[in-house]
């Protein structure tokens, strides 16, 4: 009985909060929009089923561009987070043992403040009259305020800032487990530090790189708050478009089709990650 409960609990959770909503969203994506309440034809009647929303998705440049934007921005943000996060995680893993707990704490500390508030804070910092521009102008470094906010720069900054801990922690976990004798063995066999890093540390930290990158990439692709608050009109991301379809256009079927498309798109990197995990587990 207890055992069934333990196995059953996650299953119930998954059914209630993932599978069921997904079936509903997928159902809505398959019927035409109506000017009614609810604003779509009944998905329970197969006669209503149509792929029109998906056709729209593929044929309307706005959606394609939004998907492309989201993927591109999430990719660059992930790459930047990796470039910043790897050295951080490496330094943490090699710090004296008594400091490591504190360093991990410091990485987690931003979570104690609401995500929304921290993104708002960046908005205030980056705007033309914000702290950064005031300081730069006050010091005479720039004459005009830099256009830091409402654009891709701010979105990248927001994504990297918000999701960096998700990059650092799995990387740290992998690097910290690495037997220091392996590096010594590499040195002993003639490898200079950089070579030892490339041939030993880097390949052995691939699972951490994959996990961290996924944890940054996936929420970045669908991110709504950061592009909404920090982004401009120039390159909308898919999360923003989704919101607009749902709440401004009230085209629920189109929005649902977008959501299904997004999920399909994110499945690819998850499967790639699993492949890497499997390979790492077998070695």
């Amino acid at each position: 009985m207890m055992r069934r409960l333990f196995i059953g609990a996650p299953l119930v959770w998954l059914l209630a909060f993932f599978a069921a909503p997904f079936v509903i969203v997928a159902g809505i994506s398959l019927v035409p929009a109506l000017d009614a309440v609810p604003p779509f034809a009944s998905p329970l009647n197969p006669a209503n089923w149509t792929l029109d929303s998906y056709r729209l998705l593929i044929h309307d440049d706005l959606y394609v561009a939004a998907f492309a934007n989201a993927l591109r921005i999430a990719f660059t943000a992930t790459a930047i987070a990796l470039l910043i996060g790897y050295p951080m995680a490496y330094a943490m893993a090699r710090a004296p043992e008594r400091w490591r707990g504190l360093l991990v704490m410091l990485v987690i500390v931003p979570f104690w403040t609401s995500f929304l508030i921290r993104v708002y804070a960046w908005m205030l910092l980056l705007r033309p009259s914000g702290l950064i521009n005031s300081a730069l102008m006050g010091l005479g470094i720039v004459a005009e305020p830099l256009p830091l906010d409402a654009g891709e720069f701010a979105v990248h900054l927001g994504l990297v800032y918000s999701y960096l801990p998700f990059m650092v922690l799995p990387l740290y976990a992998t690097l910290e487990r690495l037997d220091p004798a392996l590096l010594e063995a590499a040195h002993d066999l003639g490898a200079r530090p950089w070579n030892a890093f490339l041939r030993v540390t880097l390949p052995l930290s691939l699972p951490g790189i994959a996990a961290g990158s996924l944890l940054v990439f996936i929420p970045s692709v669908g991110e709504f708050i950061i592009p909404d608050l920090l982004g401009g009109a120039d390159s909308p991301m898919i999360g923003k478009i989704l919101w607009t379809e749902f709440f401004n256009n009230r085209d629920w079927p189109a929005a649902s089709a977008l959501a299904v498309g997004l999920l399909a798109l994110l499945l690819a990197p998850i499967l790639a990650f699993q492949a890497i995990e499997k390979r790492a587990a077998s070695s």
Partner: peptide, 17 residues
């Protein structure tokens, strides 16, 4: 540094890659 010394080591844990 170790990479410039003409000796090699067998580690207690073997430290195989």
């Amino acid at each position: 540094p170790p990479w410039q010394r003409p000796v090699n080591t067998v580690f207690q844990s073997y430290a195989l890659f």
